[in-house]
Write a protein that binds this DNA or RNA. Structure first.
Lengths: 350, 350
DNA sequence: TTGAAAGCGCTAACAC
DNA sequence: GTGTTAGCGCTTTCAA
């Protein structure tokens, strides 16, 4: 059986046509409609008929076509999700919380990653919207104008997560990146540090990183401390490599730095490695703090002080909120802000 | 990408009906069919008509319904992919190679994770197949009988990756986990080590880990060495925590161990941390090797010797192979095996 | 270059 | 409890 016209040779037919409900119905001696009912829960079909149908379906290796079902019922069962990167333990945790929370509902996550680029996000959101998801979850609250318009006009719940945007599109489930960072500064100041550096990354791309830096600056200023010891990598987001390189720059320029706050645990780990290679003892010679509560920080030697923003919890809450919105329980936008927690570990303990 | 879950439930409709091709056609004064043509490349529509249509589409904020389009053309544009875990840098690299390689083709990845569980894989594969993907990529070559049957009867290209199964369903893009591990053993033996331990995880769940252990045992035996210094964590896959715990057990039981081979870099990192906490110097007192070439290993102090299996390359090759299969260039199954490379670093250098 | 008719596989709505 | 009819939004096919 060919699926492709003769003049279009791409995608030659490898498939044999899969069985349909009509095929199953014919074999079971019932109408396709009865098959449709039998294959769904909570539908009235006699036990005998259902058994006949299940036998026939099994015999044919029949699997329902979810696309066709969604098409007919106008419910695709998709929830679109964008994250900045797939290779990031924090977003992976959020994703796990989200998918696990959606598991019972029959909703499926359609995932895309933006590579920390709002232009890419725009393309991605458009592509995802073409699949007619029932809700869309975007990481971050910073979008191109067109992307914003797409989200606003999509006619479905829009959830912005991992952020606290001043002007949200719809519903927000996040936290204040600036506020979280301020907590770390309070901790470092309480430890008696005054010469505190910051390692970040290109702020136009990593918007959450920018907010963290803002929180850092503001918190230092509240204590009357200067905040000029800052190194940004040109690459965003910064990771271990940039952490190591930026730590080198920071220490070369301000050798008397007492503590370094890093935009993420990965940067902190790279920075700490570099300190150790330079013969600096952490925390005796210099304190290091990260952000994100990656496993890495717990098992590093010394273990790294960090911020736990509740990545998994964000995902779980997002799932619940999506379900609430779709079931009409909470038809209105809301703003749910979680409270990040400092986890003090060896790398900054006196 | 798509994540998949089970069951069904009712959702209230929040959506206003999005514009259709008919709406666009009406506004532009043409038939829906002409709109369909205008919105696709390589179709014959006059420039003037196309402009009218694009203007109308823009005005209505029209986005094509990919599900309906796929339904009508019997080409969903989905490529189903299963990976064991979303929170794993190796699989993330493969996924990135895969999605990037598919980007130009208009094919979209539908993703699900199995949590290293073949029963979960079976459910997932079934769920994914219901979306009628044009090809399916599964990580690993170990499946339940029913899952195997599902894959075989799907009528689409099936690609098993990250493995070298003895009896593949269809096409294989992987490497020998056992062979890769043997390379590490050769390296350690060449360094003069004879008392070599292994840290792994529950072998029924982590099949690739099992193969790695097999390769370890065989390689030791080739050198006439004993391979009893082995600790498996009950948790699979092992990560940093288990690496630390299992290293403790190994060192308590065989304090004179000279080198430890770990099932992954994460385990190696946990083990190395534990060694350091016990006052052992790496590599002077004990050598440590990992598997997977995670960033972590490069920036750890000391940097960790590991195996680079070419995770990104597996993804890129998989994408290319999927395209070849779908375009009929390479209609037959093939077996593509990449060659893992040892990266010798400080943790095992003499 | 454009349009009309048919239908993809399924479900909603209404019969019986 | 089961069948019939209609149609979801689009593309295929054929005709003009």
């Amino acid at each position: 059986m060919l699926f492709v016209s003769d003049n279009n040779q791409e995608f030659a037919a490898l498939k044999t046509r899969p069985a349909t409900m009509a095929d199953v119905g014919k074999l079971a001696g019932v109408s396709p409609m009865t098959v449709s009912r039998a294959l769904r829960p909570d539908t009235s079909v006699s036990t005998k008929t259902r058994e006949k149908i299940e036998k026939a379906a099994k015999e044919l290796g029949y699997l329902i076509d979810s696309n066709a079902a969604g098409f007919a019922s106008r419910r695709t069962g998709f929830v679109a999700v964008t994250i900045p990167s797939i290779n990031n333990a924090n977003f992976a945790d959020t994703l796990r919380g989200l998918t696990d929370g959606l598991k019972q509902s029959g909703l499926q996550v359609l995932l895309g990653y933006t590579n920390y680029d709002v232009a890419e996000e725009e393309r991605l959101v458009e592509q995802l919207l073409k699949r007619r998801p029932e809700a869309i979850v975007v990481t971050g609250g910073n979008h191109t104008p067109h992307c914003r318009a797409l989200l606003q006009n999509a006619g479905i719940p829009v959830l912005e997560i991992w952020d606290d945007p001043a002007d949200p599109v719809d519903t927000v489930i996040g936290f204040s990146n600036a506020g979280a960072c301020a907590l770390i500064v309070e901790h470092l100041v309480a430890q008696g540090h005054t010469r505190i550096g910051f390692l970040g990354s290109d702020e136009t791309r990593d918007r959450r990183g920018k907010d963290r830096h803002l929180g850092f600056v503001e918190a230092l200023e509240r204590h009357g401390l200067v905040s000029d010891r800052t190194i940004f990598s040109a690459i965003a987001p910064s990771s271990m490599r940039e952490g190591a390189a930026c730590a080198t720059q920071l220490l070369d320029r301000w050798p008397d730095t007492q503590a370094i706050m890093c935009v993420s645990d990965l940067v902190a780990f790279g920075a700490m490695s570099q300190c150790q290679r330079r013969g600096l003892k952490v925390p005796q010679d210099i304190a290091i703090c990260g952000f994100g509560a990656y496993d890495l920080s717990e098992f590093a030697v010394p273990a790294i002080t960090t911020i736990d923003v509740g990545a998994g919890q964000i995902g779980a809450t997002t799932a619940q909120t999506v379900l609430d919105r779709l079931m009409g329980n909470t038809p209105n936008p809301s703003r749910i802000l979680l409270t990040p927690k400092v986890i003090v570990r060896e790398s900054s303990a006196s």
